[in-house]
Simulated assay, not measured.
Amino acid sequence: MNTKPILHRDDPEAEPLVGNIKVTRDDWLNLAMDVLISDGVEQVKVMNLAERMAVSRSSFYWYFKSRQDLLDALLAKWQATNTAALIAQAEAPARTITAAVCNVHRCVVNTDLFDTALDFAVRDWARREGKVRRMLDQSDARRLAALRAMFARFGYEELESETRARVLYYMQIGYDLAQLNEPQDIRLSLVPQYLFVFTGVEPLPEEVEEFAAYASSFWEEEDQT
């Protein structure tokens, strides 16, 4: 009788779950992400994850070579979501600079684009590990470069583009880190003023309305869950 498992490390998702294999690579990765966010990288341990999913830790090795392999996968996912999304939003087509900033701010309200809690978890991780610190520095540089290019695209001079990109980026990081628990209606009411401060340009009413509708749709989904 052939007892060789169907699943294999190099492409585990290409085959269905069979036999004693009860979880997928994404299951391991998603739970590891949750633990990273809630408890920190020190708690992202194979045995800990296996116990939470009520599976043998041996199944972990169908998908990852080691704990470090899993940690590298977490960092790759962070880069492929948060950093890539912010850059994509900065590069998205827009008629005006205020509309472009609204595109970027979609990352603030849509966790599918940008997971703020994950970003904070990686920043905390970076305080403990030089490799992660270097990756974070590179990511911040790429994000700022995209924002700088966004302002330059609308005619801002080089130094002003750099300064406004920094104000926009660092303000948002600090805003989220402060965890103000600000009422949503208050936050939305300040959007026109924020846009003016970030750009020096008065936003069009329809731009503010479109962003408010976008933000409200995501906040309503959160309230229902």
Results as ranks from 00 to 15, higher is better:
Asp137Lys: 11
Asp140Ser: 12
Ala117Val: 02
Arg153Ile: 00
Phe151Gly: 00
Ser139Thr: 13
Ala145Val: 02
Ala149Gly: 05
Arg142His: 05
Asp124Pro: 01
Ala152Trp: 08
Met150Arg: 09
Arg128Lys: 14
Lys131Tyr: 08
Ala152Gly: 15
Met135Ala: 13
Arg142Leu: 14
Val122Arg: 03
Arg148Ala: 07
Met150Gly: 02
Asp124Thr: 05
Arg153Lys: 09
Ala121Pro: 00
Val122Trp: 02
Ala126Arg: 07
Gln138Tyr: 08
Asp119Tyr: 03
Arg148Asp: 14
Ala117Tyr: 05
Arg153Met: 03
Asp119Glu: 13
Ala145Pro: 00
Ala149Trp: 01
Arg134Asp: 13
Asp137Gly: 08
Gly130Glu: 14
Ser139Arg: 02
Trp125Pro: 05
Arg153Tyr: 00
Phe120Tyr: 04
Leu147Val: 03
Ala152Lys: 13
Arg134Ile: 09
Arg123Pro: 02
Asp124Phe: 02
Asp140Gln: 15
Leu136Glu: 13
Val122Ser: 04
Asp119Thr: 07
Leu144Ile: 06
Arg127Cys: 10
Asp119Cys: 10
Arg123Gln: 13
Ala117Leu: 10
Leu144His: 14
Leu118Ala: 13
Ser139Val: 01
Ala117Arg: 14
Thr116Lys: 07
Ala152Asn: 03
Arg134Asn: 06
Leu118Val: 02
Val132His: 01
Arg127Thr: 11
Glu129Leu: 02
Arg123Ala: 09
Trp125Cys: 06
Val122Thr: 07
Phe151Gln: 01
Val132Gln: 04
Arg148Asn: 13
Leu118Arg: 09
Gln138Leu: 12
Ala117Ile: 06
Ser139Pro: 04
Arg134Tyr: 01
Arg133Gln: 11
Arg153Cys: 01
Ala146Lys: 10
Gln138Ser: 15
Asp137Val: 04
Ala121Trp: 01
Asp140Phe: 10
Val122Tyr: 00
Arg142Tyr: 06
Lys131Pro: 05
Met150Pro: 02
Met150Ala: 10
Arg123Val: 05
Phe120Asp: 09
Arg127Ser: 07
Arg143Asp: 01
Arg134Leu: 12
Ala126Asn: 07
Met135Arg: 12
Gln138Asp: 15
Ala126Met: 08
Arg123Ser: 10
Val132Pro: 03
Val132Lys: 03
Arg142Thr: 02
Ala152Val: 03
Met150His: 05
Trp125Arg: 08
Arg153Phe: 01
Arg134Cys: 05
